[in-house]
């Protein structure tokens, strides 16, 4: 396993796309952190958000400070998780796109081990995305909150724990990406499906399924909701849509998604002939 992990590490650092994506995530999260901090501290800001999603109203009371900072500081796992997912998926799809899967499997024919190494190697990479994404969000978010005269609560142990879980869940998202890439090794298809699902399909599912009582329970198990549960703060939940799993269940659900997708990939693309 150690040689396989070293190989995976080298595959990563000898290409450039990952740090371009890392930079994109940092900029995107810094932007979102600042903007959301600003919007949520507007007069009736808490209500403005629900207004955006569920209709309803300015009667909504402003968010208490703890919820406010949590919503702002966890924007990375709530809205930016697509970056580590894509980086994880690329670790697999790139091999098929450039057919480097051939020399890879010649050097190590045990395909489960190759996939396992990719899953494990994605965790520190995802953690890097987690650290950078979370720090970028907090940097601008806290700055704007401070300027607006709100407490930033960066010395609150609960808030720090939330930040740590934000890093953790983004690391797991990279692993989910690896599983997804294995299940869908066509690079273009994988990226299109990932963007469509994370940016469009799942938010809509959460909105509609969450609106009806019989399906409400399912929503918490959707991957994005499970990811949000890990930090215990939900952009959607604080918008009054649906509730979340306990954090550890969310974590297990997300890990489960990653392993399930990886198993699917192992049984399909990685079992097939490489030709």
């Amino acid at each position: 396993m150690i040689p396989a992990l070293r190989a995976e590490y080298r595959k990563l650092v000898t290409t450039r796309l990952w740090w371009v994506l890392l930079l994109c995530m940092a900029l995107y999260m810094a932007f979102l952190g600042g903007v959301m901090a600003f919007v949520l501290t507007q007069e009736g800001g808490g209500g403005a958000m629900t207004g955006g999603f569920g209709g309803g109203a300015d009667e909504m009371p402003p968010l208490p400070p703890e919820d406010l900072v949590r919503t702002v500081y966890t924007l990375a796992p709530a809205l930016g998780y697509v970056f580590p997912v894509i980086v994880g998926a690329l670790a697999v799809t790139n091999e098929f796109r450039h057919m480097t899967i051939t020399p890879t499997l010649l050097a190590e024919p045990r395909r489960s081990l190759v996939l396992g190494a990719k899953l494990v190697a994605s965790l520190p990479l995802g953690a890097l995305f987690g650290v950078v994404g979370t720090l970028a969000t907090v940097a601008t978010g806290a700055l704007v909150l401070a300027v607006r005269g709100e407490p930033v609560l960066l010395d609150d142990p609960d808030v720090l724990l939330t930040l740590a879980r934000s890093v953790l869940v983004l690391a797991v998202w990279a692993m989910v990406g690896v599983g997804f890439g294995a299940a869908m090794p066509n690079q273009v298809a994988a990226i299109v499906v990932l963007l469509a699902f994370t940016q469009f399909v799942e938010p809509l599912l959460r909105l509609f399924l969450g609106a009806f009582e019989p399906t409400e329970g399912i929503v918490r198990w959707l991957p994005g909701a499970a990811g949000e549960a890990v930090t215990g703060a939900s952009f959607y939940a604080s918008s009054g849509i649906g509730n979340l799993l306990p954090w550890w269940q969310g974590l297990l659900a997300l890990v489960g998604y990653g392993l399930l997708l990886a198993a699917l990939g192992r049984a399909t693309s990685l079992r097939r002939d490489i030709s």
């Binding site: 150690i2 040689p3 396989a4 070293r6 190989a7 080298r10 595959k11 000898t14 290409t15 450039r16 796309l17 790139n94 450039h98 057919m99 480097t100 051939t102 020399p103 890879t104 050097a107 190590e108």
Partner: peptide
């Protein structure tokens, strides 16, 4: 097997260095 099994972004040395750990 075929001339196309390289990541175009990697240098020749990096292509080999990626494989070296598993080759041993």
């Amino acid at each position: 097997l075929e001339a196309a099994s390289f990541h175009p972004g990697r240098s020749a040395r990096d292509h080999l260095r990626v494989l070296a750990p598993q080759v041993g």
